[in-house]
């Protein structure tokens, strides 16, 4: 009988403890309800991409020498370089250049190895289309520059956490033109040059 009673008591204690823990959990959930939302209302507000953001690739037709380094360093040999040898000037003449962004993984190897810097990465990332073939950008499409988030009148630009002014922890509360916390890369370079003296 005593064994049974102690068992019942133990069970009751367990139940009370479980109820207590659930109550604590509920308090945590409830506490979250009064915090401000951390989400960005995307098409109307956009985060400013960081400096080394690897977005859609930009291509400058006139700089290209048709060396095909980009094709060789690409993990899947993606860029299509169409050139013809012009025997009069003894040079390759580029006819067209295209990258299919439905297949590209945005690794940036082509940008890294391009000898004439005709490839660069932009901050464009919203590449949605109705047809996957539209993602195959030719040299004209690759030459277009994306609209900057900060210059688009329809969009409220919002900074990411690392780029916020000192003391501000939320993108909505700071203007994107305010100076961010910490030193800028330019200042660091200047300082090191001043101290080393060269």
């Amino acid at each position: 009988m005593m064994k049974f009673l102690s068992k019942v008591g133990e069970y009751a204690r367990d139940a009370v403890q479980a109820a207590k823990y659930i109550g604590q959990g509920m308090m945590v959930t409830f506490d979250h309800m009064r915090r401000r939302p951390i989400t960005v209302r995307y098409p109307y507000e956009k985060l400013i991409p960081s400096e080394r953001f690897r977005g859609r690739i930009h291509f400058e037709f006139d700089k290209c020498i048709s060396c095909e380094v980009c094709v060789r360093v690409c993990p899947i040999n993606l860029p299509v370089v169409d050139w013809e040898y012009n025997s009069e000037i003894k040079k390759k003449e580029l006819k067209s250049y295209s990258i299919d962004f439905g297949v590209c993984i945005f690794c940036g190897n082509c940008v890294e190895y391009c000898p004439t810097n005709c490839l660069s990465m932009t901050e464009e990332y919203d590449l949605s289309t109705f047809d996957r073939h539209e993602l195959n950008f030719d040299n004209v499409a690759l030459g277009r520059l994306p609209t900057k988030v900060t210059e688009d009148p329809l969009v409220t630009p919002i900074r990411e956490l690392a780029y916020l002014p000192k003391g501000v922890l939320e993108g909505h509360k700071a203007d994107h033109r305010e100076r961010r916390a910490g030193k800028l890369p330019v200042e660091i370079i200047e300082e090191t040059q001043a101290t080393t003296g060269n």
Partner: peptide
């Protein structure tokens, strides 16, 4: 709405 608030989202707006 409440789910959104509990997860620090806005929900339907």
């Amino acid at each position: 709405k409440i789910s959104a608030a509990a997860q620090q989202r806005i929900g339907p707006e």
